[in-house]
């Protein structure tokens, strides 16, 4: 879903850069105030973890395989602000080191993958926590959150392409959300399984982030 350069027009490029830069500036301020300098090493290591987690391949139907995207997982484990900052660092490194996504399209990729990927699913989990959920319900909410964290960025990506006049709105939206609705199911299943393991071994790590969020 990383948009390369050449697909977005200047207006969209600028708009996305503005939103992303603003969000990350606020997020940095909030994380700094809350946990002090301790966050930085921890967040750095967690960003590296997201990278490593994306290395694991999961077999899907017919010889294809997929991997975790991790935006929702980062937000759940670290909180919205920290999660989106870590994902922003991941996206920036993907751009500068791996050429995943363009230099000018970086603003849009930050917006889609780092920001929307981190914030679009967490509210469901927060909502479920208000009702003191059973383990099953909590995991289900996590799955729904992970699904949304894939589908909403895909829709935003389609929107940006449409805004740039590159691809027609409706078809792009239907196709992008359609494909990612399936990818989202994989993300949801993997995320649920990962969270279940963490909940079993170190439940305190999960509790901390949900208190913060």
């Amino acid at each position: 879903m990383h948009i390369p350069d050449g697909f977005l027009d200047p207006k969209t490029t600028l708009l996305c850069y503005g939103i992303s830069a603003g969000w990350i500036a606020i997020a940095l301020k909030r994380t700094k105030g809350r946990l002090g300098e301790k966050t930085v090493p921890l967040m750095g290591v967690m960003g590296a973890f997201i990278f490593a987690a994306q290395m694991f391949n999961f077999p899907i139907a017919g010889g294809t395989s997929g991997h975790l995207l991790g935006g929702f997982l980062a937000a759940l484990l670290l909180g919205v602000w920290e999660g989106s900052t870590v994902m922003a660092a991941v996206v920036l490194i993907q751009c500068l080191v791996f050429q995943d996504g363009g230099l000018l399209a970086l603003g849009a990729n930050l917006l889609n993958i780092a920001i929307l990927g981190a914030i679009s699913g967490l509210w469901i989990v927060k909502l479920s926590l208000l009702r003191n959920p059973s383990k099953k319900l909590f995991l289900l909410a996590c799955g729904a959150g992970a699904w949304l964290s894939v589908v909403i960025p895909a829709a935003a990506c389609a929107g940006e392409l449409g805004l740039s006049g590159i691809a027609p709105w409706k078809t792009t939206l239907v196709a992008m959300t359609g494909i990612h609705a399936l990818i989202g199911v994989v993300e949801a299943i993997i995320t649920i399984l990962i969270i279940a393991v963490i909940k079993k071994i170190r439940p305190d790590l999960l509790r901390m982030s949900s208190d913060k969020a």
Partner: peptide, 14 residues
């Protein structure tokens, strides 16, 4: 098993 390995990797990383 892959998912639980990721979970364990997270805890170790943390």
């Amino acid at each position: 098993s892959t998912a639980s390995l990721i979970g364990i990797l997270f805890i170790r990383t943390y």
